[in-house]
Simulated assay, not measured.
Amino acid sequence: MATIGLDKLYYAKITEDASGMETYDTPVQLAKAITAELSVELAEAILYADDGASEIVKEFKTGTLSLGVDDIGSQAASDLTGAVIDTNKVLISSSEDGGLPVAIGFRAKKSNGNYRYFWLYRVKFGIPATNLKTKGDSITFSTPTIEGTIMRRNKADAEGRHPWKAEVTEGDEGVAPEVITGWYTSVYEPVFTPVAP
């Protein structure tokens, strides 16, 4: 079903232990979302046998997330890009900046009124693009865009895999209401029921 909206854009800072395993801080709102463009790059291998493709493997390699937002506040800019806030509360960007990865969550409204919810587990952002224009005969809004690289997380889930995205649709069969109501209280952790032998 088609989506007709985008809102509730959140991020959660990541803390890594000595082995690189992630834990997530409590999510906080990043900004008001205007656009979210997600593209994925796959690693692909084809095994040819008997004059044809015998096996094909496609795996997630990396992705790109481009966010159009109404404004990026100083604290969010600092958390996402590594810029620092000085004593006078001025955001200082330097050539040495390099933000740490964060988790990004958002939701998209579907045409039936339900929402599709997302968490991207590990996104490393670059410097936001700023487009400014002088005011002319009509009013034109100028809003920032920030682009990040999506990576798989280091911490494996209960099945030994390294997720890069969690996605759920409100109202789908079997989706517990607490999954939806708790989506922004913490970054979603995959849950798997063990299969009886």
Rank of each mutant, 00 (worst) to 15 (best):
residue 117 Y to G: 14
residue 170 E to G: 06
residue 148 G to K: 09
residue 176 A to Y: 02
residue 131 N to P: 10
residue 112 N to F: 10
residue 139 I to S: 08
residue 179 V to C: 05
residue 173 E to D: 02
residue 127 I to Y: 13
residue 162 H to A: 00
residue 120 L to W: 04
residue 104 I to W: 05
residue 128 P to A: 10
residue 141 F to M: 13
residue 113 G to M: 01
residue 164 W to D: 09
residue 178 E to W: 14
residue 119 W to E: 03
residue 175 V to I: 12
residue 177 P to G: 07
residue 117 Y to S: 13
residue 149 T to R: 07
residue 96 E to M: 01
residue 161 R to Y: 07
residue 128 P to I: 11
residue 158 A to P: 11
residue 170 E to H: 04
residue 154 N to K: 00
residue 134 T to G: 14
residue 129 A to D: 14
residue 153 R to A: 01
residue 174 G to Y: 00
residue 152 R to M: 04
residue 114 N to G: 05
residue 142 S to Y: 10
residue 164 W to Q: 05
residue 166 A to T: 05
residue 133 K to D: 15
residue 96 E to T: 03
residue 169 T to G: 09
residue 102 V to N: 11
residue 95 S to C: 03
residue 175 V to L: 06
residue 136 G to P: 02
residue 101 P to D: 03
residue 157 D to R: 00
residue 151 M to G: 03
residue 139 I to G: 03
residue 140 T to M: 12
residue 161 R to G: 03
residue 119 W to I: 10
residue 153 R to W: 00
residue 129 A to Y: 08
residue 139 I to A: 12
residue 135 K to S: 14
residue 171 G to C: 07
residue 148 G to N: 10
residue 132 L to I: 14
residue 128 P to G: 07
residue 148 G to L: 07
residue 122 R to A: 02
residue 111 S to F: 09
residue 154 N to P: 00
residue 101 P to G: 01
residue 160 G to Y: 01
residue 112 N to H: 07
residue 142 S to H: 12
residue 128 P to Q: 09
residue 164 W to Y: 14
residue 159 E to I: 06
residue 131 N to D: 15
residue 164 W to S: 06
residue 110 K to Q: 11
residue 129 A to W: 05
residue 162 H to W: 00
residue 150 I to H: 00
residue 127 I to D: 06
residue 157 D to Y: 02
residue 143 T to N: 12
residue 100 L to V: 00
residue 173 E to T: 02
residue 100 L to E: 01
residue 125 F to N: 08
residue 101 P to Q: 01
residue 156 A to R: 04
residue 170 E to M: 04
residue 155 K to F: 06
residue 175 V to H: 05
residue 115 Y to D: 15
residue 98 G to I: 03
residue 119 W to K: 09
residue 124 K to Y: 01
residue 134 T to I: 05
residue 142 S to P: 08
residue 179 V to W: 11
residue 169 T to C: 13
residue 175 V to W: 07
residue 130 T to F: 06
residue 158 A to W: 10
residue 135 K to I: 10
residue 96 E to Y: 02
residue 135 K to W: 04
residue 182 G to E: 09
residue 125 F to G: 08
residue 163 P to K: 05
residue 122 R to Q: 05
residue 113 G to P: 06
residue 141 F to I: 07
residue 161 R to T: 07
residue 154 N to M: 01
residue 153 R to D: 05
residue 172 D to G: 04
residue 137 D to P: 07
residue 102 V to I: 10
residue 164 W to E: 08
residue 113 G to A: 03
residue 176 A to R: 04
residue 146 I to T: 10
residue 178 E to Y: 13
residue 105 G to F: 11
residue 149 T to N: 05
residue 155 K to T: 15
residue 123 V to D: 03
residue 131 N to S: 15
residue 117 Y to V: 13
residue 162 H to E: 03
residue 112 N to E: 09
residue 142 S to K: 11
residue 147 E to Y: 02
